[in-house]
């Protein structure tokens, strides 16, 4: 990898971490979710900064082409993330259903009470 490309990639990754941090600051992202994104960013920076690091690791693990290792890791991580998100959505759905049901029943009770009160007056 040429030095200029290396520097460009590092700059992009730093920018990416900055975006993540700003999202936390603006309360768009929960801190617990941000850990994943920050750690991937840091790992990327280290991998780009150390020459031949990716090639060496992929050879050590037995990948014939280092790009394969990158794809492999990327796909596994994406699967993991999507699955986790699915679980999260299911959980939120359950909570949402409970809330809608309870609020709707409460609203009915309040309306009935208001009606009764109106009749007394």
């Amino acid at each position: 990898m040429q030095l200029s490309l290396r520097i460009a990639l590092i700059v992009i990754t730093v920018l990416y971490i900055f975006v993540v941090l700003r999202a936390i600051k603006n309360k768009k992202l929960q801190v617990s979710f941000s850990v994943f994104w920050i750690i991937t960013g840091l790992i990327l920076i280290v991998a780009i900064a150390i020459p031949n690091s990716i090639e060496n690791i992929s050879k050590m693990l037995g990948f014939e082409v280092s790009v394969n290792m990158i794809f492999c890791i990327a796909i596994f991580l994406s699967f993991y993330l999507v699955f986790n998100l699915n679980i999260l959505i299911s959980k939120e759905n359950r909570k949402n259903t409970l809330l809608i049901q309870e609020i709707s029943i409460l609203k009915k009770k309040v309306e009935e009470l208001e009606k009764k009160q109106g009749e007394i007056k």
Binding site: I100, Q101, I103, S104, I105, K108
Partner: peptide, 24 residues
């Protein structure tokens, strides 16, 4: 006599609301 769900839940969620009402 009705309960107005503040959002669409689908048949299962709607029926369960009825059971909750029956229970209460």
């Amino acid at each position: 006599n009705h309960i107005n769900l503040i959002n669409n839940l689908g048949i299962g969620g709607a029926v369960q609301t009825g059971y909750k009402y029956a229970y209460q």
